[in-house]
Design a binder for these strands. Sequence first.
DNA 1: CCTACCGATCGGTAGG
DNA 2: CCTACCGATCGGTAGG
Lengths: 205, 205
Amino acid sequence: MSRRADDAGRRGQLLRESARLFRERGYDATSVRDIAAATGLQSGSWVYHFKTKQDILAAVMEQGLQQALERIEAIAREELPPREHFRALVRTHLDTLLGPGQDFIPVLLYDWRSLDKPGRDRVIALQKRYEQVWEDVIHQLQRAGDWAMPTRIDRLLMFGALNWIVQWYRPRGPLNATQIVAEAEKFFLRTLPRARARRPGVRRS
Amino acid sequence: MSRRADDAGRRGQLLRESARLFRERGYDATSVRDIAAATGLQSGSWVYHFKTKQDILAAVMEQGLQQALERIEAIAREELPPREHFRALVRTHLDTLLGPGQDFIPVLLYDWRSLDKPGRDRVIALQKRYEQVWEDVIHQLQRAGDWAMPTRIDRLLMFGALNWIVQWYRPRGPLNATQIVAEAEKFFLRTLPRARARRPGVRRS
DNA sequence: CCTACCGATCGGTAGG
DNA sequence: CCTACCGATCGGTAGG
């Protein structure tokens, strides 16, 4: 209950509400007054936590990516068979994109154009680390024969397929995240495990 | 040189400049003054061609999709082997997304949130027709054994991989559109042609 | 953290 | 199609 704890709480609250509003309407269509009102502040009081509206956007993207990075780096440290490793990455990536209250990374994906140059450079540095984790696991998959020859374009197409899900996934829709993870794995890994490779009939639904 | 032709020319000019600016900066970050200036008009003169700025956005998206639809429906009418058919769709889709001066569909993909409800409904109707063309060809692929069991999620993942290319493709970058088409086809069609299936070494680069 | 307000810019219009 | 301008809203600040 110290002043610093309160302050951090307010800052976090501002970030969460900003992320939610940016995701819903976009950065430009969200006013600082909207953000203040959603946080229970008067129209000019957000300046005690952020210098500019642009700084709020940068903080949303950086914090979101920072947390996503921690999650997948933890997975990278686990000892798992390549396919399990890959599946865990996909599952975590999709939870970061589609999970309840997960608005930070969608803002990064949707409103990239609105971020100014200095902010972009910092985000790009984090993204490189994020992609490196994937590259290591994909390389394991290749050695195990589960992904014949992953090229740079392959990896970009894969991220595209995953990131685009934000555009069509609806939490209360007919497809749940677990189904999507299973389908995505099958979609990406052309060399299916030998035991199931000749039996397409096992697919449910 | 009739007044109507001039009028249609101006309207087309306004649409092209709007598409270019919307794509570069986004709908909200582009002012009607920016559009007027790019077209060589005074700040209020765009109103003789469109009622509101929102109408400009709707026209950009609808015209872009209308033209894309004509292109792939022409392909659908050709008699081709399934794989060739699919490759032609991918090639045309990517040209619509990445070709020089092709800003209309990227605006549709980027600024979907900025379109109001009536506009969305009209665009959705066109998109359904667009997807139907793909579904028919994918079904041919399935019968030919080139796409084991295409599900709804598979199709959404495929469109995601393709549409996301707009985010990373750079005309002067190291990857050209032809390479991407070839990689995309390999990426989607897990059952490779028998003659080349066992010889990954033929890949160039 | 609030009240009151600033200069700038926005989409769109009146009158010609 | 232009000139001149409107009311509204924007991000951000001065003073307390």
